[in-house]
Design a protein around this nucleic acid. Sequence first.
DNA 1: CCCGAAAATTTCAAACTTGAAATTGTTTGC
DNA 2: GCAAACAATTTCAAGTTTGAAATTTTCGGG
Lengths: 133, 133
Amino acid sequence: MWIRLLGVTRAAEGELREFLRVEHGTTLPRFDVMAALYRRRDGVTMSELSRMLLVSNGNATTVVDRLEADGLVRRTPSETDRRTVFVALTPEGLAQFEGLAAGHEAQVARMFGGLSEADLDALTEILKRMGAA
Amino acid sequence: MWIRLLGVTRAAEGELREFLRVEHGTTLPRFDVMAALYRRRDGVTMSELSRMLLVSNGNATTVVDRLEADGLVRRTPSETDRRTVFVALTPEGLAQFEGLAAGHEAQVARMFGGLSEADLDALTEILKRMGAA
DNA sequence: CCCGAAAATTTCAAACTTGAAATTGTTTGC
DNA sequence: GCAAACAATTTCAAGTTTGAAATTTTCGGG
């Protein structure tokens, strides 16, 4: 059961990874970061980012470093707390992400395609209860 | 929805990773390999192994290399096809894995603890249909 | 005020992961 | 037979990931 759950998500991640690589020359972790920044358009701190993606702080730093070097993301120091930094998509990053998002959406839709409305509700409920455990 | 699914599996992987590290000084990929070899006690080829775990061939090689160096796993060349190699747990590997398995089982049980029999059936059915897509 | 605890981020070494290329071996069509 | 396609594994460079340690900054209680 757990094995099967893991199998489904890994297979899906693999497909997404391939899509990003072949069609857009990018990678899954970069996509994840950009997706998080897309959902929080006005910027997030590094800590928030790593909490959102469930990755370590160090990891967030490296991926953001690379995205920043490519001009897709911008770091802005906080005015009120000199420890914190805000990260946000640049216009270039926003444009690139919107290009990726459509393809990703289509993949996810295909993945859930065989499911009825009731199935989706049931799955939502189950995952909610598992998350609580 | 897809986000939530990913969130649940990542959180669970994180817990398992921590359990393996703190309680047993090992890592998730090593555990995965050993679990696969435990289920196929008489040995698998490298290709089978990477297919089972949905990881690349090169990845399987490195993890097996390390497990072999630690004496937990053994490589045996095939007699009939000199390209292929069989990998299997050593007695030490088997013993160590059995030590890990109980704790892992408990974690998985806790994770699915809030779910009824009907929920589990529904989840199985849904995942099966998603895997087919 | 000031010292120590706590917080945010980065740095670092080690491990993991990928995909492509290289190596070695097998098979198949001619 | 033999050359070309195919298959199994390893090697390799680049990128990802982790967790711990280091750095810098803030904050709260004497």
